[in-house]
Design a protein around this nucleic acid. Structure first.
Length: 524
RNA sequence: GGGCCUGUAGCUCAAUUGGCAGAGCAGUGGGCUUUUAACCCAUCGGUUCAGGGUUCGAGUCCCUGCGGGCCCA
């Protein structure tokens, strides 16, 4: 009978029996210690008493007095992750966010010992008791009183084998987090990385802002947007694909250092290296150029990795990636010459470049622009070679409609991308602030869009108006936070560093709708 | 978009050339007062992803679809 439905029915029955005795879902608990604090408390007591044996003797000697263990008394809460029951005694493992502690229940000390029958793996308990160390050396709570504070009615994944089914790990991430230590680590590391990035910018007196997700034009990057609809305005809006154009408006408005960490949305493929929504950091600093930005990025990555990992070196399979400054720098053109033997200036037209790509068997979409084909060549020959962090400097103007041209070479812009492990990590420019040049380049993008290029950038007239009011020279930066987390944690797949990655639709997980109980409508 | 792999109990995994769908954990009942992957005895549990086909007989072979993974673009 223990099909999944039967396992659930058994637990629902236990829930009812607990509710008949009181509450199985109290709103308040009285935690005094996390599990880690409780263990530390006992270890400190041992040090104070001169060792584990002396501590145990002290406890034994005091056992008859009225309030023997006030210093060792704890109330802890957490989830039951293991049960070892032996008739008249039981050991349970309780886990909270700080760690794990063992509980010892004794029938002769607990009138409600029998209620342990109603406890399953996955339930949450509140227990009060005193700390001691078992014969086998584990700090343990000798339970004086306890209660269920949440009854779980579905079975947990296997406590020992964990949860390995990748699909379940992604679709029901909470189970992955319960079962797999590594998944918890990654999630917390990600949080530390984002905090460290934010602190880095705040320490440098950047101002953090929030700009619109819903936009009339989705600009600032070459990507297909999601389209949504505003009913009241009766018009379609775009989900943002970058943060760039609004942050630059703030430079026009007088901000000098500004940044945003925000979700952007790109209507593209779903894979281990692409998620349709991802977290982007962008920063803009007036009176800085892309060389200043490059130096800042070196400091940023080294300091974030060091604060999270304790070292700027990250193990990735066979590679050790060193995020110690300075990073290698090579120009885009030199890199393609060095790794592909191609000087793109020898192929100035779409036709000649397309012929070359075909001859080299480098695929590109039919009707692709010169810039797109060039990018395909760089993706093929250069990017996979860039394992250690490397700045690829000075991009072709045609690829970079928002970057400032080099003064002595209008075909090239002051732009770099940072690569590591063959991944693009960062993208930065000396920002284009000449409104006439910017308008011409946007018009060029508009022509490509009209010709069918779905990734051409949209014309943003309001942004151009802002630029015409004057934007100071500035260095701008974009960093894909998910890829940065992937780089620093050593995880290859973005799906490991995104808690809830996008997946194809699947039949929804059924919830419990038994007519065994009338539903009670809770007001919000 | 292409290639390869994959889907079996709540979880982790078996199942010989096509021959009665199994084990461990979890659950249930019993025993056990310092265990820790607790242990011992007993026991329950299956739309083998879905649909079709071949066959006396399909988890296994074939086709289609769905989900997932890896590699390539």
């Amino acid at each position: 009978m223990p099909s999944e439905q039967e396992l659930i029915a058994q637990r629902l029955d236990k829930r009812e029996r607990l509710l008949a005795q009181g509450d199985a879902y109290p709103a308040r608990v009285a935690r005094t210690h996390t599990t880690a604090e409780a263990v530390a408390t006992y270890e400190a007591f041992e040090v104070e008493r001169g060792g584990p044996e002396a501590a145990a003797e002290a406890i034994a000697a005091l056992a008859e007095s009225s309030d023997p263990f006030h210093r060792l008394g704890v109330t802890i809460v957490g989830r039951v992750t293991a049960q070892r029951v032996m008739g008249k005694a039981a050991f349970l493992d309780l886990r909270d966010v700080s760690g794990r502690i063992q509980l010892h229940f004794r029938r002769d000390a607990l009138p409600d010992f029998g209620n342990l029958d109603l406890v399953d793996l996955g339930d949450f308990l509140e227990v009060s008791g005193t700390l001691f160390r078992t014969r086998t050396g584990e700090v343990t709570v000798s339970v004086v009183s306890w209660r269920v504070i949440t009854k779980a009615v579905r079975p947990m994944p296997d406590a020992y084998h964990g949860l390995t089914d990748v699909e379940t790990r992604y679709r029901q991430r909470y189970l992955d987090l319960i079962a797999n230590e590594r998944s918890r680590e990654i999630a917390f590391q990600r949080a530390r990385i984002v905090s460290a990035v934010r602190r880095f910018f705040l320490d440098r007196e950047f101002v953090e802002v929030e700009t619109p997700v819903l936009q009339e034009e989705a600009g600032g990057a070459a990507a297909r947007p999601f389209i949504t609809h505003h009913n009241e305005l009766n018009r379609d809006l775009f989900m943002r694909i970058s943060l760039e154009l609004h942050l630059k408006r703030l430079l026009v408005g007088g901000f000098e250092k500004v940044f945003e960490i925000g979700r952007v949305f790109r209507n593209e493929g779903v894979s281990f290296r692409h998620n349709p929504e991802f977290t982007l950091l962008e920063s803009y600093e007036a009176y800085a150029d892309y060389n200043d930005v490059a130096r800042m990025v070196e400091e940023l990555l080294a300091s974030v990795a060091t604060s999270v990992l304790g070292t700027p070196e990250v193990q990735h399979g066979d590679h050790v990636v060193s995020l110690r400054a300075p990073f290698a720098r090579i120009t885009y053109r030199d890199a393609l010459m060095q790794h592909g033997g191609i000087d793109y200036k020898d192929y100035p037209t779409t036709e000649t470049l397309a012929a070359l790509a075909q001859q080299r068997h480098v695929a590109f979409a039919p009707g692709a622009s010169w810039a797109t084909i060039l990018d395909a060549l760089v993706s093929e020959y250069v990017e996979p070679k860039l394992i250690q962090p490397t700045f690829l400097m000075d991009y072709p103007t045609a690829l970079s409609p928002l970057a400032k041209k080099k003064i002595d070479d209008p075909d090239t812009v002051e732009r770099f991308e940072l690569f590591a492990l063959g991944f693009e990590i960062a993208n930065a420019y000396s920002e284009l602030n000449d409104p006439v040049d910017q308008r011409e380049r946007m018009e060029e993008q508009a022509r490509k869009a009209a010709a069918g290029d779905e990734e051409a950038e949209m014309m943003d007239v309001d942004f151009l108006t802002a630029l015409e009011h004057g934007m100071p020279p500035a260095g701008g930066l974009g960093i894909g936070i998910d890829r940065l987390v992937s780089l620093i944690t050593g995880e290859h797949s973005l799906r490991e560093v995104i808690l809830f990655p996008a997946l194809r639709e699947r039949a929804t997980t059924d919830t419990i709708h038994e007519d065994r109980e009338p539903t009670e409508d809770g007001g919000a």
